Computed example of a mutant assay.
Amino acid sequence: MDPLDLPLTTDRLRLRTYVESDAEEQLRIFSREDVSRFLLEDPWTAEVARTKVSERMRRTGLDTESRALALVIETADGLDFLEGSHVIGDIAIWLEDGSDEKAEIGWILDPAASGHGFATEAAIAVLNVAFDHYGLHRVFAQMDSRNIASANLARRIGMREEAHLRKDWWSKGEWTDTLIFGMLSSDRQTA
């Protein structure tokens, strides 16, 4: 298999691997209570941001030792309503334990960047890589059922809701429901 050609680019986005200096920009997003509310971790501190970015820097492809690809989502230069390029989130895909054909996808977007279709554009680009470059059979996403924006994104990109698990996850002092969405290579949309 040829190495993945990075960064990935779309009409309005650049999806690139992490560098050490991303800790500050991602801290701005991941330290927010409204962002971390539905995540499995607490809001980031500066120290946590440095550690998490260091971990993500090693996730450079499904065919690497990490078996994962973590990308910074940043806007492309020259968008009419934004000046310059801005880090607006994170998207990652990682192989399911024991499989080379099934992977999980996850995304986090700065709430200030929502409503412009950026998450949809990024997710479709990563799904295209998953199916076209890596030849995956299935990609799935799991999320807190209260995360309506994430569930809507999964539906928008063509993922199918496959399960609603009731009170199956203990998170931040309460039992929460989990939604599971899936997409097979045969039922995907292309960017």
Score class of each variant (00 low, 15 high):
residue 110 D to G: 08
residue 135 G to S: 10
residue 135 G to Y: 10
residue 139 V to Q: 00
residue 102 K to H: 14
residue 141 A to S: 14
residue 109 L to N: 13
residue 98 G to W: 05
residue 115 G to T: 08
residue 105 I to G: 01
residue 143 M to S: 06
residue 127 L to N: 07
residue 141 A to H: 07
residue 109 L to S: 13
residue 129 V to T: 09
residue 101 E to M: 06
residue 98 G to Y: 07
residue 111 P to L: 02
residue 139 V to R: 01
residue 141 A to T: 12
residue 137 H to A: 11
residue 105 I to V: 06
residue 103 A to Y: 04
residue 128 N to S: 15
residue 103 A to M: 04
residue 143 M to D: 03
residue 110 D to V: 04
residue 118 F to G: 05
residue 125 A to H: 13
residue 138 R to F: 04
residue 120 T to W: 05
residue 114 S to C: 05
residue 101 E to S: 10
residue 111 P to R: 02
residue 116 H to D: 02
residue 136 L to R: 06
residue 142 Q to I: 04
residue 106 G to S: 06
residue 122 A to E: 01
residue 139 V to A: 02
residue 102 K to M: 14
residue 115 G to L: 06
residue 143 M to E: 01
residue 101 E to P: 03
residue 106 G to I: 05
residue 133 H to I: 10
residue 118 F to S: 00
residue 97 D to T: 14
residue 120 T to H: 14
residue 114 S to H: 06
residue 112 A to H: 09
residue 126 V to E: 09
residue 117 G to F: 07
residue 104 E to R: 00
residue 136 L to W: 00
residue 104 E to V: 00
residue 132 D to M: 05
residue 107 W to Y: 15
residue 98 G to I: 11
residue 132 D to E: 15
residue 98 G to H: 04
residue 142 Q to S: 09
residue 110 D to A: 10
residue 109 L to E: 11
residue 101 E to H: 10
residue 133 H to W: 15
residue 143 M to H: 05
residue 145 S to I: 13
residue 106 G to L: 02
residue 113 A to T: 07
residue 138 R to P: 06
residue 122 A to H: 03
residue 139 V to F: 00
residue 124 I to P: 07
residue 143 M to A: 04
residue 98 G to A: 05
residue 117 G to A: 08
residue 108 I to D: 01
residue 132 D to N: 09
residue 142 Q to C: 05
residue 145 S to F: 15
residue 99 S to L: 11
residue 100 D to I: 07
residue 126 V to D: 10
residue 97 D to G: 14
residue 105 I to S: 00
residue 130 A to H: 11
residue 127 L to E: 10
residue 109 L to K: 15
residue 124 I to Q: 15
residue 114 S to W: 01
residue 109 L to P: 12
residue 124 I to V: 15
residue 108 I to A: 05
residue 120 T to Q: 07
residue 138 R to I: 07
residue 97 D to Y: 12
residue 103 A to P: 01
residue 139 V to E: 02
residue 116 H to T: 05
residue 129 V to Q: 08
residue 114 S to N: 03
residue 102 K to D: 15
residue 132 D to V: 08
residue 103 A to Q: 03
residue 103 A to K: 01
residue 145 S to A: 15
residue 136 L to M: 11
residue 108 I to G: 01
residue 139 V to P: 00
residue 117 G to M: 07
residue 111 P to A: 06
residue 116 H to G: 04
residue 135 G to F: 04
residue 144 D to Y: 14
residue 140 F to T: 08
residue 116 H to Y: 08
residue 129 V to F: 07
residue 105 I to Q: 00
residue 140 F to P: 04
residue 102 K to I: 15
residue 136 L to N: 10
residue 102 K to R: 15
residue 120 T to K: 13
residue 140 F to H: 07
residue 105 I to K: 01
residue 120 T to E: 12
residue 107 W to P: 03
residue 97 D to V: 11
residue 119 A to K: 00
residue 131 F to E: 10
residue 115 G to A: 01
residue 97 D to R: 14
residue 108 I to W: 00
residue 110 D to W: 09
residue 114 S to M: 03
residue 139 V to G: 03
residue 133 H to D: 12
